[in-house]
Amino acid sequence: MQIFVKGLTGKTTTLEVEPSDTIENVKAKIQDKTGLPPDQQRLIFAGKQLEDGRTLSDYNIQKESTLHIVWR
C-alpha cells in the first residue's frame, strides 16, 4: 500500500509499505529516500508519536494515510 510522509518543509515523500511493517522498517525506507537516519526521525500520526516496535496496523494506518515527520 502507499502512504505519504510529510515533513516540516511541506515536502511529501511517498512510500510503498505493508500494514505489517514495523515503524522501524518504515524509518529505514524513509532513510533510503531522504538520507535522514532513523535515529533522527520522529513519526507522528493522529497526534501520536509512533514507536519503533509497533506496526502500521497497530496504529490503524491505512493506504494513503499521511504521517508527519519531525527531525530530532
Rank of each mutant, 00 (worst) to 15 (best):
P38Y: 10
S20V: 05
K33E: 08
I44S: 08
K48P: 01
W71H: 14
R42I: 15
E18H: 14
T66M: 10
L67C: 01
K11C: 11
T55C: 05
T12K: 09
K11G: 12
Q49S: 09
S20G: 11
Q2D: 05
A28S: 11
P19G: 07
I3C: 02
G53K: 10
S20L: 09
H68K: 08
Q49M: 13
Q41N: 04
L56R: 01
L8K: 09
D32M: 14
K29V: 04
V17R: 00
D21Q: 04
K29S: 04
V17L: 05
G7N: 09
T22M: 07
R72G: 13
E18V: 13
Q31V: 04
L56F: 02
T13I: 15
E16G: 05
Q31E: 08
D32Y: 11
D52I: 05
D21T: 08
R54Q: 08
E64G: 15
G7E: 11
E64F: 14
L43S: 00
D58V: 03
Q31P: 02
E24N: 07
I61C: 01
L15H: 03
K6R: 13
Q49K: 09
R72S: 14
Q31Y: 15
K27E: 01
I61M: 03
K27P: 00
S20K: 08
A46K: 15
T22Y: 07
T14Y: 07
V70E: 13
T12V: 14
T14H: 05
G53S: 10
P19K: 07
K6P: 02
G10S: 07
K29G: 02
W71Q: 12
Q2L: 15
Q49L: 15
F45L: 03
F4N: 05
N60T: 04
T12L: 14
N25V: 14
K29T: 03
N60G: 14
I3A: 01
L67E: 00
R54M: 12
D58L: 02
H68A: 06
I44T: 07
K63P: 15
D58C: 02
R42M: 15
L36E: 04
L15R: 00
E64R: 08
N25L: 12
Q62P: 08
L36M: 12
D39I: 09
L36Y: 11
T66I: 12
P37S: 10
K6S: 08
E18L: 15
E64A: 08
V5Q: 01
N60Q: 10
T9D: 15
T66V: 13
L36V: 14
H68L: 14
E16D: 12
E18N: 13
T12S: 09
D58G: 03
E24H: 12
F45I: 03
T22V: 05
N25K: 14
E18M: 14
L8I: 12
D58A: 05
M1K: 02
G47E: 05
K27T: 02
L50E: 00
N60R: 06
V17D: 00
V26M: 03
P19V: 07
Q31T: 10
D52G: 07
I61R: 00
D58M: 04
K6Y: 06
D52V: 05
P38V: 15
V70N: 08
K27R: 05
G10V: 10
F4V: 05
P37F: 07
F4G: 03
L67A: 01
G47I: 02
I3N: 01
H68Y: 14
D32F: 11
L15N: 00
F45N: 02
A46C: 07
H68C: 09
K11V: 13
T13E: 12
F45E: 01
I44G: 03
N25Y: 10
Q31R: 14
A28P: 01
G35D: 04
D21G: 02
Q40T: 08
T12N: 07
D21I: 05
T66W: 09
E16R: 09
Q49F: 13
F45V: 03
L15F: 06
V5G: 02
E18D: 11
G53P: 06
Y59N: 02
T9H: 15
I3G: 01
L43Q: 00
A28N: 11
L15D: 00
R54E: 04
L67K: 00
P37R: 12
T66P: 02
L15C: 02
W71A: 13
K11N: 12
K48E: 13
Q62D: 08
T66A: 04
N60S: 08
G47N: 06
G10K: 08
P37L: 09
R54V: 05
P38F: 11
L15A: 02
V17E: 00
D21M: 11
G47H: 05
Q40D: 07
T13L: 15
I69Q: 04
E16L: 13
P19Y: 07
I44L: 09
I23W: 01
Q2I: 15
F4S: 04
R42N: 12
I61G: 00
K48W: 07
D32N: 13
T22L: 11
V5N: 01
T55F: 05
K63Q: 12
Q62Y: 09
I69M: 10
K11A: 10
R42Q: 13
V17G: 01
L56N: 00
D32E: 14
H68N: 09
D32Q: 14
L8Q: 09
R42T: 14
